[in-house]
Design a protein around this nucleic acid. Structure first.
Lengths: 194, 194
DNA sequence: CGGCTGACAGAATTCAAAATGTGTCAGCCC
DNA sequence: GGGCTGACACATTTTGAATTCTGTCAGCCG
């Protein structure tokens, strides 16, 4: 049966479960192996180290939390509206996760913080999506931008407060969405042709 | 002699010295008292608690690190140039401190992180200065803004990456100033009348 | 063979006992 | 009297011995 073969996929699921239960500080490879009913040596047949396993979990989580974005990126709305909606989606998904289960979210902050390679790749993906929206805007005459990737990076940097997990403590503020809107207003006006 | 009276001022200086030497985790009130040659009970005559003492140190440090800003705020340059220069000053002072003595900077990050009241007051002061620059710009026709404090807050939020100590690890990037310039470009264009 | 086990060395973490720190206050000294 | 001391109760931190974990590998089993 499929459930009896030990795959990276099954290990990742068990690892998430263990992390959820014990938190990032106490979760061990032995716990993961125990949850799967195998010896911990087997886990090392699929992941080179505990660090690699944790990176893979972080990667999976980032994929999941960014899953809604591509639909917005290639949506039908005009670029300025799409850009605002994209930023609100990015912020909204993360805030929902953070407020829904703060402990689990804290766990993922730690994992992602350790996985600098993974996070860099993820940011590149986000800049790519933003670049596409901005390029669409330029094509339609809604935006006027000299260097599209530079502008895309600037937009991501300017909204760090609203998507970087290190700021999640401030996402409980009921005013936070209005603050994001205020920044969007400024950025959108900055992109528009004059 | 003035040096023999125990003043809050002298205690704060000793506390900074102790924090510099032992770091935020190991510095104790007993250490501070020892450095001053008094019993630790005397320190409590001037500060209600260890927490209050640490807050006062954080406050002092924020004052010092923001000391250069008022001169920029009320400088002679046109508002757009002044705004850019203000943001570069804020970023530059902090980055210089962070790169010059990373351990001491880490100490201050911890202290300021504990002192939420102090940090809120400090942010209010920064928003006030930004509001003044933006209001000047509106008066001169360089900016067109509906709600000046809202715009000021948005500018501060959009540049969090460049002045919030939690992002200091990224300030070593040689590209960081260009990134700030890219965000400034966007924000200044967003404030300009059309 | 290819994947899993279980024993192992060295590194990291736990836990309880001992030491140190925090905050208070009665009394001393200038 | 106003500020300082030093002893105290309670809380937090250190310490080091014992446990547990990580990563490896020779050998087993299907």
């Amino acid at each position: 049966m499929a459930d009896s073969t030990l795959t990276p996929e099954r290990i990742l699921e068990a690892a998430e479960e263990v992390l959820r239960r014990f938190g990032p500080a106490k979760a061990t490879v032995v716990d993961v192996a125990r949850a799967l009913g195998v010896s911990h040596g087997s886990v090392y047949r699929h992941f080179a180290s505990k660090t690699a396993l944790r990176e893979a979990v972080a990667d999976r989580w980032l994929d999941r939390v960014h899953a809604d974005l591509p639909a917005v990126t290639s949506g039908p709305a005009p670029a300025p509206e799409r850009l605002r909606s994209w930023l609100h989606t990015l912020h909204g998904t993360k805030r929902a996760t953070a407020l829904d289960d703060p402990e689990l979210f804290a766990t993922y902050i730690v994992l992602v913080g350790e996985a600098s390679t993974v996070i860099a790749a993820s940011l590149d993906g986000l800049v790519g999506q933003l670049s596409r929206i901005i390029a669409d805007g330029v094509a339609d005459g809604d935006f006027a931008v000299g260097d599209v990737p530079r502008a895309a990076r600037a937009v991501l940097h300017a909204t760090v407060r609203f998507h970087d997990p290190t700021h999640c403590a401030q996402w409980a503020d009921p005013d936070i969405e209005r603050q994001l809107d205020a920044v969007c207003d400024l950025l959108l006006d900055g992109l528009r042709p004059r």
